[in-house]
Design a protein around this nucleic acid. Structure first.
Lengths: 207, 207
DNA sequence: AAGTTTATTGACTAGTCAGTCAATCGTGCA
DNA sequence: TGCACGATTGACTGACTAGTCAATAAACTT
């Protein structure tokens, strides 16, 4: 409908657009050093509206981070519910971590920035620790159903670190198809962590 | 010597102080969003002097990053020359990565920031790729002297990712003694990557 | 239709910051 | 001693930005 420049939308829609624009901006700049004006322009609104909805720049950023976290969590939950064994549930977590949506360059950049920021800012830190704890809890829970060789907590930490490390390194290489490779490497790590790991681990990457 | 407020120093000294102050500032803020004035204040000089020596903010940041990279490289080279076998040289790389100086919170934060920035800025990217390539090359070279189970390049990538991942996650946990744990986890990964890995892998962490 | 609420913006402010420049001050050299 | 060069700075500016506010206009209520 040719409504022209002035369209009014529901509050939630505007919020979503602003958060999307925020993640885009942060992702492209690979830094939190982006202006509210730039974000608003991307969302097609005035900067005053961004302040109206989110209060301040920091609140907007935190909302964007929260959106990343919940998107990931929802994906994990959905995939977990579809898997039947502990081993395949581990694979589900891996798959979720490297899902195309999560693995997009801008998303990776945003995660990295938030990871860094979380180390100095309490507000960001609290948010990120929720994610870290939940992922650790999930990993440990599934590992408990498997014959882990060695310390279980270390195994969970190893998997989490491998995921984060591969995630972080994504974007530095030029080659595509890094996604499949990241999954393969992580799966191999998991198999290595399991005692008497059979060659066939039962995982299968999804296109 | 009570020289008072006005002391003149050699150019190189001032540069070092400014770079140190830059890394401190970036590390504390966990972001590149620090002012030249703040950095200069930390170094005990005027902001004009920082511009005098480095030209601009970006050049100062790049110099700081370069300093991180060469410090790490020097440490790796030193440790590599002391190790005798491929396996112990791998451990040397691990030890260097988690050396207390490299593992300090501020240093970790600075690395993380640079990692993120490297994905969008060509200048930062070039710099970081040098480090990534060299580390990869080192890892692959040592792995060639060992019975690797599976793809050698994937094994090198796995080790590198594990190091980066543990590195990134450092600072999120509250517990100390993460250093030893990070080393242990990485060593275990390496052993897992080697065919018929013996229980005693020959590495020994250094206090 | 009148009134209320809510979305939306342009214009403004107060503050910040990177980078410049001319002037000052040591230090070593002829 | 005098000179020249590098170190160092205070003061300044031009540009930019977060956040405010009052005004407008669409949508919703009754």
């Amino acid at each position: 409908m040719a409504n022209g420049a002035r369209t009014r939308k529901k509050s939630a829609d505007r919020r979503d657009e602003l958060i999307r624009a925020t993640l885009e901006s942060i992702g492209e700049a690979c830094s939190l050093d982006v202006t509210v004006g730039e974000i608003a322009r991307r969302a097609g609104v005035s900067s005053a509206l961004a302040h109206h909805y989110f209060g301040g720049k920091d609140d907007l950023f935190l909302a964007a981070m929260r959106s990343l976290l919940t998107a990931f969590r929802n994906d994990v939950v959905a995939r977990l519910s579809e898997a039947e064994t502990s081993r395949t549930r581990l694979s589900a977590i891996v798959c979720a971590s490297f899902a195309p949506a999560q693995f997009a360059p801008n998303t990776v950049a945003a995660w990295t920035i938030f990871y860094a920021k979380a180390q100095s800012s309490p507000r960001y830190g609290r948010l990120l620790r929720v994610y870290v704890r939940r992922l650790r809890s999930n990993l440990q829970h599934e590992l408990r159903g498997l014959p882990v060789a060695g310390d279980l907590e270390d195994a969970a930490e190893a998997i989490a670190a491998m995921i984060d490390g591969l995630y972080l390194r994504q974007g530095l290489q030029r080659a595509p198809a890094e996604r499949e490779r990241a999954i393969a490497i992580t799966e191999k790590l998991i198999d290595g962590l399991l005692a008497h790991s059979p060659l066939d681990s039962g995982w299968r990457s999804r296109a």
